[in-house]
């Protein structure tokens, strides 16, 4: 039916929907697409007083400067290492938690554990980092004292470059495992109870039910989240890392986002900072497209 109606009539017919979406559209153009255009300054020697139109174009000079700078390898390696570990370690735990909670018979226990594990998510990054710093305080930190009581040496964990990544990842897991499991629990609640009953009649053990019913149910959700997470691999959260940084651990805690903030904004190297950020975005986008293709080919689940 709609095929026979000319496009301008169909457009006219949905004008009210266009009006409804207009505010969001304006927002999108001004606050999301305009900065993308602004990112062109990565190819310029940007001069704040003359703007994008007046600044001179320098091609890839800013990118070359970053690739040749002595921090490049370290910043890139830190970013990749922290993100990959976060992904590899952070990805399976929420799934395991959801599977365990789903297999429980008691609803009260299930609700209680679910609610408690979900609470730390609501703690702000500033507070979270404070709790970490207090717990690892060289003299009074409760974790420091516990580790010492067990006979291991632990002095200033926050100042130890080797300890930075484990602290970052474990605390992240503590804070988000419950929250991240919600989406899997929701997916599991869509399983038809008849399947479990049929499996019980066939003599399946609890573990077999998880293996043959629950895990296949979760795969599409898991794949989509995995792709999205890989797409964010390089855009590592600035907030927590920046707060956890200090001069002692900088060699393993300086990542692209913190570097862009310091060099690009605080030291006002606008073009250079933009180029570094753009480098980051492009790698993210390519990784996402790549993983999406691979997933679609081998398992049929993709973002589009």
């Amino acid at each position: 039916m709609s095929m026979t109606i000319p496009w301008y009539q169909r457009l006219a017919r949905s004008w009210q929907l266009w009006v409804l979406i207009l505010p969001a559209l304006i927002y999108l153009v001004v606050f999301r697409y305009f900065p993308m255009y602004g990112a062109l300054m990565a190819f310029q020697d940007f001069d704040p007083s003359s703007g994008i139109f007046g600044s001179t174009w320098v091609g890839l000079q800013q990118f070359e400067m970053f690739l040749n700078s002595y921090v490049f390898i370290r910043v890139l390696a830190n970013t990749l290492f922290i993100s990959l570990l976060t992904l590899v370690i952070g990805f399976p735990f929420p799934i395991i938690l959801a599977l365990m909670l789903n297999s429980l018979g008691s609803r009260t226990v299930k609700k209680t554990v679910q609610m408690t594990t979900y609470l730390p998510y609501f703690i702000s990054t500033v507070v979270m980092v404070t709790i970490i710093m207090e717990a690892l305080h060289p003299r009074s930190g409760i974790i420091t004292l516990m580790v010492k009581a067990l006979g291991f040496p632990l002095n200033n964990a926050m100042g130890d470059p080797n300890a930075f990544v484990p602290i970052y990842i474990i605390s992240g897991l503590w804070q988000t495992v419950g929250y991240s499991s919600i989406i899997y629990i929701a997916a599991l609640s869509s399983v038809d109870p008849c399947l479990y009953e049929a499996a019980t009649i066939d003599g399946a053990s609890k573990f077999q039910k998880i293996w043959y019913i629950d895990i296949p149910t979760l795969i599409p959700t898991a794949v989509i989240l995995l792709i999205l997470n890989i797409g964010r691999i390089m855009s590592l959260g600035f907030e927590k890392i920046y707060l956890m940084q200090n001069n002692l651990n900088l060699q393993s805690s300086e990542v692209i986002s913190t570097y862009v903030y310091k060099v690009g904004l605080l030291e006002a190297n606008f073009s250079f900072g933009t180029a570094v950020g753009l480098f980051d975005s492009v790698i993210n986008l390519s990784l996402l497209l790549l993983v999406n293709q691979v997933m679609k080919k081998y398992n049929g689940n993709g973002l589009w």
Binding site: W7, R10, L11, R13, S14, L17, W18, I21, L25, L28, V30, F31, R32, Y33, F34, P35, M36, Y37, G38, A39, M41, P48, G231, S257, V260, Y261, G264, L265, F270, G273, T274, G277, L278, D280, S281, N284, L285, L288
Partner: peptide, 27 residues
Amino acid sequence: FFGGTVLMGLFVFTMLFSGGLIPNYLL
């Protein structure tokens, strides 16, 4: 909704790509 698919594409693209810190600051 006429044009919905295209607009959806515009929205989703912003999840994948952004201008970055400094262009946002200058905006």
